[in-house]
C-alpha cells in the first residue's frame, strides 16, 4: 500500500501479512506512518495505490463488517450514556435490538464500567472512555481488532488494566495495535512490524527477530580514574579487531562494544586491558536487546 498526502509519502509501498489468531504490534516512532497504515486498514483512507485483502474468509462486500477499530483518541456522543452508545454501535453493525442490548451489558461488565453504563459519556474519565472504546470495537465480534495507540494516553494503572484486557482478548480474535513503546509490544505480541519513515524496517515473529538480529555485546566499565579514561579514549580511536561499533556509556568511564565474534573479541580486549593495567570494574558479555534493535532500526541511516 502507498499513501501520498500532497508531496509527502506518508506510507511508501509497504506490504505485510497477518495470520489469524495472532497479535501483531505496529511499532515505530511518531510520524513513521503507523496511524496512516491503520486508517487505511480500517477503511478510513483509501490507499493511493495497493489493496487490502482478507484471505480464506468468505468474500464480503464490506470489509468493515470484519473489523473492530479504536482510534487514538476515541470520540463519543457526550449526550449519550455508555450503554446507549454501545447499543447504537451494535445496531449499526447489524445486531438486532435485543442482541445489541444484551451484548452491551456483557461488554460493559467485561471492560469494568458496568456501574457507569447509565451515566452520560460526557462525564467519563479518559480511562473509562478508552474502555468504552474497546467495548464498541468488539461488540460485533470482529475477526480483526485494530487499535491505534490504545494505551498511550492512559496513566500507569489504566495502562495495566487495558493491557490485561488485551491479553484476554488475544485468545478470541486477531489483534493489530500500534505503539511507540517497545515494552508494550514485547509484553503482548507474537509478531512485530517496525516502521520507519513510511517503510517497514523489520517484521516477523518477535522471537525470531530477537534471535536473528541479536549481536554479541561486551560491556566494559572502569573505575573512571584519569589514567583509565585516557587509555579508553586512546584505545577507542583505534579499536581492536572484530569490534563493529561502540557506544560510550553515559558515565563516560565505560563503553559498550558490539562485536562480530565474541571469543576473539573477549581475548583481545582482555589482553590489551592487562597490558595497559586498566582499573576494570566490570567486563560483561551479553547480547543486544530488542530495544537496541528498535533504536537502530528507527534511528539508523
Amino acid at each position: 500500500m502507498t499513501q501520498i498526502f500532497g508531496a509527502t509519502k506518508a506510507v511508501n509501498d509497504i506490504s505485510f501479512t497477518m495470520d489469524e489468531g495472532r497479535c501483531a504490534a505496529l511499532l515505530g516512532p511518531n510520524g513513521a506512518g503507523k496511524t496512516t497504515t491503520i486508517r487505511m486498514l480500517a477503511g478510513l483512507l483509501a490507499p493511493t495505490s495497493g489493496r487490502i485483502h482478507f484471505r480464506g474468509l468468505p468474500q464480503v462486500a464490506d470489509r468493515r463488517q470484519l473489523i473492530g477499530y479504536l482510534p487514538q483518541v476515541p470520540a463519543f456522543y457526550g449526550w449519550m450514556t455508555g450503554r446507549e452508545f454501545l447499543i447504537h454501535a451494535g445496531r449499526l453493525c447489524g445486531l438486532s435490538g435485543k442482541e445489541a442490548a444484551s451484548r452491551s451489558m456483557e461488554w460493559l461488565e467485561r471492560v469494568g464500567i458496568a456501574e457507569a453504563g447509565k451515566r452520560r459519556i460526557a462525564g467519563y474519565s479518559g480511562g473509562m472512555k478508552q474502555r468504552l472504546g474497546l467495548a464498541q470495537a468488539l461488540i460485533h465480534r470482529p475477526k480483526l481488532l485494530i487499535l491505534d495507540e490504545p494505551v498511550s494516553a492512559l496513566d500507569p494503572i489504566g495502562r495495566r488494566e487495558v493491557m490485561g484486557l488485551l491479553r484476554d482478548l488475544k485468545q478470541e480474535t486477531t489483534i493489530l495495535f500500534s505503539t511507540h513503546v517497545l515494552h508494550d509490544a514485547e509484553e503482548l505480541c507474537d509478531d512485530v512490524l517496525i516502521m520507519k519513515a513510511g517503510h517497514i524496517a523489520i517484521s516477523g515473529q518477535i522471537q525470531d527477530i530477537r534471535y536473528q538480529y541479536r549481536k554479541p555485546v561486551l560491556f566494559l566499565d572502569t573505575e573512571g580514574d584519569p589514567e583509565s579514561r585516557q587509555w579508553l579514549n586512546q584505545w577507542l580511536k583505534q579499536p581492536a579487531q572484530g569490534i563493529q561499533s561502540y557506544e560510550v556509556l553515559p558515565s563516560g568511564s565505560g563503553v559498550k562494544l558490539i562485536v562480530d565474534e565474541i571469543n576473539i573479541a573477549r581475548q583481545t580486549v582482555l589482553e590489551q586491558l592487562l597490558a595497559a593495567n586498566v582499573q576494570v570494574t566490570r567486563l560483561e558479555v551479553g547480547y543486544t536487546t530488542l530495544e537496541d534493535l528498535f533504536m537502530e532500526a528507527v534511528s539508523g541511516a
Partner: peptide, 13 residues
Amino acid sequence: ISGMASMILVKPV
C-alpha cells in the same frame, strides 16, 4: 473534526 465520524464510518454503515 471530533473523530465521531470515523468511529461510526468504520462500522458497516
